[in-house]
């Protein structure tokens, strides 16, 4: 796949399909988010990046031996880990026995919100969500820092040229 445009589109389609998968797995909130983020925002960003960079991949000529080795090793470790996992959908799995049932028991009278996911997200684990907001915040500040100011002006010799070289030529 040389055309990055196709790559971006396919990755959007991949996100959409995974959102469908999440729906079938009862994770409607996650599906909603994945659709909005994966198929929406990140595709738009990817296209925006391509508009500023390149649309085609150039060439790739190196031995895939090391990547293959790393990937196989990681995959093997995961498969090894799955051997002691409970069957898919097994109600006796530890994840369904500990902590989670308590949320169902307590959230109706402690939180009183029908969507249990919202209750956990915003209250029981609200601190995580605050951290998540901070992650979004730092990404926003980061992008503003990296891409602020018009690059075009610099070409014609603008004041930024000075700061560019202030640190010296190292």
């Amino acid at each position: 796949m040389r055309s990055l445009f196709a790559v971006a589109m396919l990755s959007g389609a991949f996100s959409l399909l995974s959102a469908l998968l999440f729906v079938t797995l009862d994770a409607v909130d996650v599906a909603f988010t994945e659709a909005a983020v994966g198929a929406g925002i990140s595709t738009v960003l990817m296209l925006g990046t391509m508009a500023l960079t390149a649309r085609f991949e150039r060439h790739a000529s190196h031995s895939p031996a090391l990547p293959l080795f790393v990937v196989t090793l990681t995959g093997a470790a995961i498969i090894y880990g799955t051997l002691d996992m409970p069957n898919f959908g097994d109600p006796a799995a530890p994840v369904h026995q500990h902590v989670a049932p308590e949320y169902f028991e307590r959230s109706p009278h402690e939180i009183g919100v029908p969507n249990v996911v919202t209750g956990i997200l915003a209250s029981y684990r609200g601190y995580d969500t605050m951290g998540e907001t901070a992650v979004v915040f730092s990404a926003g500040v980061g992008v503003m820092l990296l891409l602020s100011g018009l690059r075009r002006r610099k070409r014609k010799g603008d004041p930024d040229e000075d700061t560019q070289n202030k640190g010296g030529k190292a």
Binding site: L45, G48, G119, G140, V143, L147, R151
Partner: peptide, 28 residues
């Protein structure tokens, strides 16, 4: 509380996404 914090999340996310969009578009 949930209403308040969700409002906070909503504001930050909207603003960050728009800011990222501005930043990308503002690049020549």
């Amino acid at each position: 509380g949930i209403l308040l914090v969700e409002a906070g999340v909503g504001i930050t996310v909207t603003a960050v996404m728009v800011a990222i969009h501005y930043a990308f578009v503002g690049r020549a």
